[in-house]
């Protein structure tokens, strides 16, 4: 009997080879993040956020790597990511502009603000500029209603932004990020 046991253990685990694939950057990033946050389901949110911080969005490869590292299904990872506005699953520009579209900011002129940005960047809401510098999006209430209209660029909040002010602000980003 022990003989059989031994044979079973030896022969059942013929290693399945993955076949010389190079590990991509995003796979490494995910591995690092999982090391920091732990290999369990609760780490899903911080890992998703970590990837978005570095990559601006969650690519198919990134979500597959996360699923693999956390032993989840890819549909689960995508389902969670798609629930959150700030976890994008399509490519985004270097700087993400989000203009609040909720009622107070609406009343305080978010339409004019958006129009000015669209004209200056030559894109519509939801689009990214050709040079991949800016993506223009809208967001739900950002909690700054008393100082509307509000826009958020990456993590920076810009309250009481007039169309004119907005143009000056994005000018800053343009020069500071262009090499």
């Amino acid at each position: 009997m022990t003989k059989i046991k031994h044979l079973i253990q030896n022969f059942s685990l013929q290693k399945f080879k993955k076949g010389g694939q190079k590990m991509s950057n995003v796979e490494n990033l995910v591995k690092e993040l999982v090391k920091i946050h732990g290999k369990n389901r609760n780490s899903l949110m911080p890992v998703l956020q970590g990837v978005v911080k570095e990559e601006k969005y969650l690519s198919e490869d990134a979500m597959m790597a996360i699923a693999k590292e956390l032993d989840l299904s890819t549909a689960d990872v995508y389902g969670t990511a798609s629930f959150y506005t700030f976890l994008d699953t399509v490519p985004r520009g270097k700087n993400i502009i989000r203009v609040c579209k909720t009622i107070t900011c609406h009343m305080k002129g978010k339409d004019e603000l958006i129009k000015a940005l669209e004209d200056a960047l030559k894109i519509k809401v939801g689009e990214t500029t050709h040079d991949k510098q800016f993506t223009l999006l809208t967001a739900n209430c950002l909690g700054w209603c008393h100082k509307g209209p509000v826009m958020l660029i990456n993590d920076e909040i810009y309250p009481e932004t007039s169309p004119q002010a907005a143009l000056e602000i994005i000018e800053k980003y343009q020069t500071s990020t262009k090499k």
């Binding site: 198919e60 979500m63 989840l72 299904s73 890819t74 549909a75 689960d76 990872v77 995508y78 389902g79 798609s82 629930f83 699953t89």
Partner: peptide, 26 residues
């Protein structure tokens, strides 16, 4: 877990990874 709840609010639906067709997923 080939199917999951994706999106939210009135966009919520039952879907696959990146809304791929059923025959392409697990």
């Amino acid at each position: 877990s080939a199917l999951a709840v994706v999106n939210k609010g009135d966009h919520q639906k039952i879907s696959t990874f990146l809304n791929k067709p059923m025959h392409e997923v697990v």
